[in-house]
Simulated assay, not measured.
Amino acid sequence: MADPSLALQGAIYPRLQADCPSVSGRVYDRPPQAVVFPYIGLGESQTVDDSADCVDGVEVFLTLHVWSRAVGRVEAKRIASEVRSSLHEAELDLGANWHFHLIEHRSTTVMDDPDGVTSHAVITFRALIDAH
């Protein structure tokens, strides 16, 4: 059976491309060497078994990263807000193999990157999915 986190990534990628105008479509699984700022990076995921009687379910915890080189943290916070608005309680289609139940925002942390130039937002979500 396919990986539910991969199906989730496939569903959120085009949604972020469309719903986050501040990054002009710059949403990456792995950013290119000469990346243009700001952008969203699809980050870490963790899949945890959430099975019950007759249900093959999982919880997927997904981390997204926002990177900005604008002065201050305002741009990073604005983009993080766009990400949250796009995905929190969204209806997603994960294809024929998975039944999507929900995705919810868990936390957002905005910080300065150690390079002293870049602002970084870390946004986490939790999704509930089970197999068809």
Score class of each variant (00 low, 15 high):
132 H>G: 03
66 V>C: 05
57 G>M: 03
2 A>H: 10
60 V>R: 01
23 V>G: 02
16 L>R: 03
95 G>E: 02
131 A>C: 11
29 D>H: 12
2 A>Y: 07
71 V>A: 13
24 S>N: 14
17 Q>G: 03
42 L>T: 04
63 T>Q: 12
61 F>L: 15
114 P>D: 13
121 A>I: 05
24 S>D: 12
73 R>P: 04
9 Q>G: 06
11 A>P: 00
35 V>G: 06
100 F>P: 02
8 L>N: 00
56 D>H: 09
117 V>C: 06
43 G>M: 09
65 H>C: 10
118 T>V: 09
99 H>C: 11
104 E>R: 15
109 T>Q: 13
80 A>D: 02
99 H>A: 11
97 N>R: 13
130 D>N: 09
85 S>Y: 14
18 A>M: 13
104 E>H: 09
7 A>N: 01
100 F>C: 03
10 G>I: 00
37 F>K: 01
115 D>Q: 11
90 A>H: 01
47 T>A: 12
21 P>D: 07
96 A>S: 13
53 D>T: 14
24 S>G: 10
10 G>S: 05
46 Q>N: 12
106 R>W: 11
90 A>E: 01
24 S>R: 14
75 E>H: 06
2 A>F: 08
115 D>T: 13
34 A>V: 07
130 D>T: 07
14 P>V: 03
45 S>M: 09
32 P>Q: 09
40 I>C: 04
39 Y>Q: 02
67 W>Q: 04
31 P>F: 05
49 D>C: 09
90 A>T: 02
101 H>W: 11
122 V>K: 08
